[in-house]
Amino acid sequence: MHLSRDVVLLLTHSGDFFTIDRVAEALARKGAQPFRLDTDKFPLEVQLTAHLDKSKTYHTIEYKNYSISTQQVQAVWTRRIWEPKLSQELAPKFREACVRESKATLDGFWDSLKEADWVDDLERISYANNKLRQLRIASEVGFVIPQTLVTNKAQAAREFFLQVNGKMVSKLLTTLSYSMEANSSFFLYTSTVREEDLQDAESLRYCPMVFQEQISKQQELRVAYVNGNVFVGALNADMYAAAKVDWRKPGVEVGAWQHHQLPDKVVLRLQAFMGRLGLLFGSLDLILTPSGEYVFLEINPVGEWGMLEKDLDLPISSAIADALLPTNH
């Protein structure tokens, strides 16, 4: 089957659900043709061809009996790009090379979509993923940010612990590892640091960590930002145990997501922040303190928002579809 209508390419993975379906449905309602590409299914199930010569270039994608030319693609949604998944029968000594070559092929292939509208552009996502840059820019646009130390120096960590009066949390800049076989990440959640932990701080020499002052919480906010619009879900901090410093952990009972209206000045800050990063979409985490201050924690340029749409009926997928269709921005 060959698609003839204008296509919006949805870059995701084979385990994705709900959010990908909602965006595809919203695009179809608006007259576009969504094409889901599960990036982890390349090279075993997705077939790519790229023809280049001095007169023209021609690229095709074939997946699940559908075939498109990248010339048909008007927009691309970067939901998630996963690593190529290879079968067990492949000789182990060639696996790494096959994965590396497949990733390089995918990276090269995206160049054929340079004329499309991206939500968001891969280079901008990479730029925005720098968490130290996030904190700097957030501060520059007027957000309060937690006092933060990133270091591999034990003495600096101990001094910072005293500076924040012993109320300190730790986290990493990245997920720990990625398993292609299980398609899972090993994840270290935000953890409270005790004084006795720092007796072992010399081991920071093997790997740095992020340390931040622990911010008092009235509410935790997840903000889905789409092309200037904000969709906010709030969790009441008193609904879960104080020891659980990270609401995302399994087993943490967080209560119900609630609607939350951000003050205009905070929305303006978010718009300025996203403008500096050049992003149309982002999932941001903020803390509302007991004194009513909004503290910026971080942004994930490809973060989650499905729970906000499902539980609060926030029209996020429709907003993403609007952002993908070029007449809307």
């Binding site: 990493l172 270290l188 959640y189 953890s191 081991s203 920071l204 960590m209 729970m307």
Partner: peptide, 25 residues
């Protein structure tokens, strides 16, 4: 805390469920 990095102590404090894919339809 085999030589391990500083973050290993926090990873060890997590449950396996926490460490190993948030509708949590």
């Amino acid at each position: 805390t085999e030589i391990v990095p500083f973050f290993a102590r926090f990873l060890a404090a997590q449950t396996t469920e926490e460490t190993e894919p948030w509708f949590k339809l």
